[in-house]
């Protein structure tokens, strides 16, 4: 049951720089660890994070095994119009999660 926490201000003034914070639940298993019996624990990580605003991509990040569990990604953007942020996390073992948040620009 993966869950995401998103923090986007619900309102902003046109031209404001806003901070977007995202937290996704994921174990981020590196693929470098071994079990007690010596077998490799298969890699299971998020490989890509994308943020779109009204359909246009505004932020993308590639993730690698060194990134901690439950990745917390935060970034800034300038808002010019009201709309919807869509977030997407894609990873190993068919992991695919989405979340969204709306903002009103005055």
């Amino acid at each position: 049951m993966p869950s995401a926490l998103i923090n986007v201000p619900s309102k902003a003034k046109r031209g404001d720089v806003i901070e977007i914070k995202t937290l996704m639940s994921h174990i981020m298993e590196t693929g470098y660890r071994h079990t007690a019996s010596g077998e490799v624990v298969p890699r299971d990580i998020i490989t890509s994070f994308t943020c779109r605003f009204n359909g246009a991509e505004i932020f993308r990040a590639d993730l690698y095994p060194a990134i901690a569990a439950n990745p917390f990604l935060t970034f800034f953007t300038t808002v010019t119009e009201s709309g919807k942020f869509e977030f997407e996390w894609v990873g190993d073992k068919g992991f695919s999660e989405t979340a969204s948040a709306s903002i009103t620009v005055e």
Binding site: M1, S3, L5, I6, N7, K21, L23, S25, N70, F72, T74
Partner: peptide, 17 residues
């Protein structure tokens, strides 16, 4: 202090479900 950056809240959300 910030519930949207506190990873413990992910478990709280799961617990609510």
């Amino acid at each position: 202090d910030d519930d949207t950056s506190n990873p413990g809240m992910l478990w709280v959300l799961d617990g609510e479900t």
